[in-house]
């Protein structure tokens, strides 16, 4: 079993959701990491969840990057630790300089909450290894600032280095203007750093990890991470024993246990 840490910033609101999926659906040990903490509790992977950290009043993710926990996360990243940023988490990674580029307001200037299709562009990463190249995943988005921007030189570098992991596409995997709902440059929905250990994505895989909610495609991302970590830890042998699913409480545990 791997240990995941879900960071809680003031204003994070997908922290419980991500926690729920990692622990109850994927069966992994999961802990919350409080933004004022200086300790990552020995996790194998850090997840920055969605939400509106600090109300996103300055710019999305702009203030969260100054949190104490972010210093630890930077060190963790430098030492090769796995970091997944979802939605607001992606925005924070951009603001913190752990990923290149920036976010602009969606092209239609509205908040967008809907199902989108994304295509796996690169499956040779720790975050996408359980998928196939070209595979289309149906995962929802929910954001106001998801219009990814990179200046031309950076963009060509990202393309050249195969750093674009997910792109918005239509049902059949075609890249169209219509499918690129927020207007991201080159339809970018998710990208990885040069070293391959930090990934940010706007779609919410934790919202597409249970059949009862309409899609399980998001599990590809979590599965990839678990496989990668198991392989790394277990001297190349994949564990066959799955963790027992813990009992789920219909009410999320009240914060107060940090």
């Amino acid at each position: 079993m791997m240990k995941f840490g879900v960071v809680v910033f003031p204003g994070s609101n997908c922290d419980y959701d991500t926690f729920h999926v990692l622990q109850n659906v994927m069966g992994q040990e999961t802990v919350f990491l409080w933004h004022k903490d200086h300790d990552l509790q020995g996790v194998d992977c850090v997840v920055l969840p969605g939400g509106f950290s600090y109300g996103d009043y300055l710019r999305s993710g702009a203030i969260a990057r100054f949190s104490p926990i972010m210093r630890e996360i930077k060190k963790f990243a430098d030492s090769g630790g796995l970091i997944l940023g979802i939605c607001n988490g992606f925005q924070i990674l951009l603001e913190a300089g752990l990923l290149p580029g920036a976010m602009l307001r969606n092209k239609n200037l509205k908040f967008l909450c809907q199902q989108v299709n994304i295509r796996i562009e690169n499956n040779r990463t720790a975050f996408s290894g359980a998928g196939k190249k070209g595979q289309v995943l149906r995962i929802p988005i929910a954001h106001f600032d998801g219009n990814y921007y990179a200046p031309p030189e950076l963009l060509s570098e990202l393309e050249k280095n195969n750093q674009i992991v997910f792109r918005y596409c239509d049902r059949k995997g075609q890249l169209t203007e219509e499918a690129n709902v927020n207007g991201s440059v080159n339809s970018i929905a998710g990208l990885i750093n040069r070293q391959g250990n930090v990934l940010g994505m706007m779609p919410h895989p934790e919202r597409a990890s249970e059949n009862i909610l309409g899609s399980e495609d998001g599990k590809v991302i979590f599965r990839s991470l678990i496989d990668y970590l198991e392989k790394k830890k277990g001297t190349g042998k994949k564990k066959t024993v799955r963790a027992v699913r813990p009992a789920v409480s219909p009410l999320p545990p009240l914060i107060g246990t940090f």
Binding site: L58, A62, I63, A102, L104, Y149, A150, P151
Partner: peptide
């Protein structure tokens, strides 16, 4: 450092 994002 804070008020503007120099990339955009």
């Amino acid at each position: 450092r804070v008020l503007a994002n120099p990339i955009i």
